[in-house]
Amino acid sequence: MAGTRVTNRIRTLRFHRGEMTQQALADAIGVTRQTVNAIEGGKYSPSLEVAFRIARVFEVPIDQVFGFDEDGDATGG
Protein backbone atom coordinates (compact mmCIF):
# COMPACT_ATOMS: atom_id res chain seq x y z
CA MET A 1 0.00 0.00 0.00
CA ALA A 2 1.27 3.48 -0.81
CA GLY A 3 1.45 5.61 2.29
CA THR A 4 2.76 8.72 3.86
CA ARG A 5 5.53 9.33 6.35
CA VAL A 6 3.31 11.73 8.23
CA THR A 7 2.21 9.96 11.38
CA ASN A 8 -0.87 10.87 13.36
CA ARG A 9 -2.65 10.22 16.65
CA ILE A 10 -6.15 10.96 15.40
CA ARG A 11 -7.56 7.58 16.44
CA THR A 12 -6.31 8.11 20.01
CA LEU A 13 -7.51 11.69 20.13
CA ARG A 14 -10.97 10.66 18.88
CA PHE A 15 -11.10 8.03 21.63
CA HIS A 16 -10.31 10.66 24.27
CA ARG A 17 -13.08 12.88 22.86
CA GLY A 18 -15.72 10.35 23.83
CA GLU A 19 -15.15 8.07 20.84
CA MET A 20 -15.81 10.89 18.42
CA THR A 21 -16.82 9.45 15.06
CA GLN A 22 -14.88 9.99 11.86
CA GLN A 23 -18.00 11.57 10.40
CA ALA A 24 -18.24 14.08 13.27
CA LEU A 25 -14.59 15.03 12.83
CA ALA A 26 -15.05 15.25 9.06
CA ASP A 27 -18.03 17.58 9.48
CA ALA A 28 -16.06 19.73 11.94
CA ILE A 29 -13.13 20.24 9.58
CA GLY A 30 -15.03 20.35 6.28
CA VAL A 31 -13.88 17.18 4.52
CA THR A 32 -15.49 13.83 3.77
CA ARG A 33 -15.43 10.91 6.21
CA GLN A 34 -13.37 8.98 3.67
CA THR A 35 -10.70 11.68 3.79
CA VAL A 36 -10.55 11.49 7.60
CA ASN A 37 -10.28 7.71 7.24
CA ALA A 38 -7.46 8.10 4.70
CA ILE A 39 -5.59 10.56 6.93
CA GLU A 40 -6.03 8.34 9.99
CA GLY A 41 -4.86 5.27 8.06
CA GLY A 42 -1.79 7.03 6.71
CA LYS A 43 -3.02 6.98 3.11
CA TYR A 44 -3.16 10.73 2.73
CA SER A 45 -1.23 13.70 4.14
CA PRO A 46 -3.66 16.56 4.70
CA SER A 47 -2.96 20.16 3.79
CA LEU A 48 -1.55 22.37 6.51
CA GLU A 49 -4.93 24.08 6.78
CA VAL A 50 -6.80 20.83 7.43
CA ALA A 51 -4.07 19.72 9.85
CA PHE A 52 -4.55 22.91 11.88
CA ARG A 53 -8.33 22.44 11.81
CA ILE A 54 -7.94 18.92 13.20
CA ALA A 55 -5.65 20.18 15.97
CA ARG A 56 -8.17 22.91 16.79
CA VAL A 57 -11.01 20.39 17.09
CA PHE A 58 -8.99 18.37 19.60
CA GLU A 59 -7.71 21.56 21.30
CA VAL A 60 -4.09 20.45 21.18
CA PRO A 61 -0.97 21.79 19.43
CA ILE A 62 -0.55 20.45 15.89
CA ASP A 63 2.58 18.47 16.83
CA GLN A 64 0.47 16.43 19.23
CA VAL A 65 -1.63 15.31 16.30
CA PHE A 66 0.95 14.89 13.56
CA GLY A 67 4.56 13.79 13.42
CA PHE A 68 7.05 12.65 10.82
CA ASP A 69 8.48 9.14 10.69
CA GLU A 70 11.64 8.51 8.66
CA ASP A 71 10.77 4.79 8.53
CA GLY A 72 7.43 5.49 6.87
CA ASP A 73 5.15 4.09 9.61
CA ALA A 74 2.06 6.23 9.17
CA THR A 75 -0.10 5.37 12.15
CA GLY A 76 1.37 6.40 15.45
CA GLY A 77 -0.08 6.65 18.97
Binding site: V31, T32, T35, P46, S47
Partner: peptide, 10 residues
Protein backbone atom coordinates in the same frame (compact mmCIF):
# COMPACT_ATOMS: atom_id res chain seq x y z
CA UNK B 1 -25.44 7.43 0.02
CA UNK B 2 -24.24 10.85 1.09
CA UNK B 3 -23.60 13.44 -1.60
CA UNK B 4 -20.72 15.32 0.00
CA UNK B 5 -19.09 17.71 -2.41
CA UNK B 6 -15.45 16.99 -3.14
CA UNK B 7 -12.77 18.08 -0.72
CA UNK B 8 -9.03 18.78 -1.03
CA UNK B 9 -8.18 15.07 -1.35
CA UNK B 10 -10.63 14.61 -4.22
Amino acid sequence: GRTDSGDERD
